[in-house]
């Protein structure tokens, strides 16, 4: 049977985490599901969770007045959603909406923050793992900013 402990233990984000830390996390975890179209979080709201996506797809969006919502990233099975819970004032910076039925493990951030304060080793472990996610997202964002598929400066061989 799939237990939360097993799901968390098998997730790459928590690989090689000490058992006692994993058990602490289980105490803050719950199963959640979002039907297609439902917002998982809204920009400006309190960031009281982060999510491990188990199934489905969610889009990170920015709302613009003229063009409507612009999707800047999608997250899928295995991805981690949300680090705003780590950084004061703990507010979401983007909207995230389920593109299709999305199942996830939600981790209660308020509960986690206090556990991290009490157990600095747990806090450091989580911070290292989130720093890795942030670094990957930052790298991807830099590539997006380059707009590499945009018009080149000079003639090219059948490519951009």
């Amino acid at each position: 049977m799939e237990t939360l402990e097993r799901i968390l233990a098998e997730h790459s984000f928590f690989a090689h985490l000490e058992l006692r830390h994993l058990q602490l996390l289980v105490g803050c975890a719950s199963n959640v599901r979002f039907p297609a179209g439902q917002f998982i979080c809204r920009e400006g709201q309190e960031a009281n969770q982060f999510y491990l996506i188990r199934q489905g797809k969610a889009a990170v969006e920015i709302m613009t007045p003229q063009r409507g919502p612009i999707a800047i990233q999608t997250l899928e099975e295995g991805d981690v959603l949300g680090w705003s819970w780590l950084i004061p004032p703990y507010h979401w910076h983007f909207d995230v909406r389920a593109v299709e039925l999305t199942r996830a493990i939600a981790l209660d951030a308020k509960c986690l923050r206090s556990k991290c304060e009490e157990d600095l080793k747990l806090g450091y472990e989580l911070l290292k793992r989130f720093a890795h996610v942030m670094q990957e997202r930052l790298q991807a964002t830099r590539l997006q900013l380059l707009d590499v598929y945009g018009a080149p400066a000079k003639q090219a061989r059948g490519r951009s």
């Binding site: 063009r67 612009i70 999707a71 800047i72 999608t74 899928e76 590539l143 997006q144 707009d147």
Partner: peptide
Amino acid sequence: VTVDRAVGRWRGNVGVVTTLIPR
């Protein structure tokens, strides 16, 4: 297929192509 950015009805992936490689 993935696109760098999407507006409107796009239901596919958004993100640079390198993000498709790990999975």
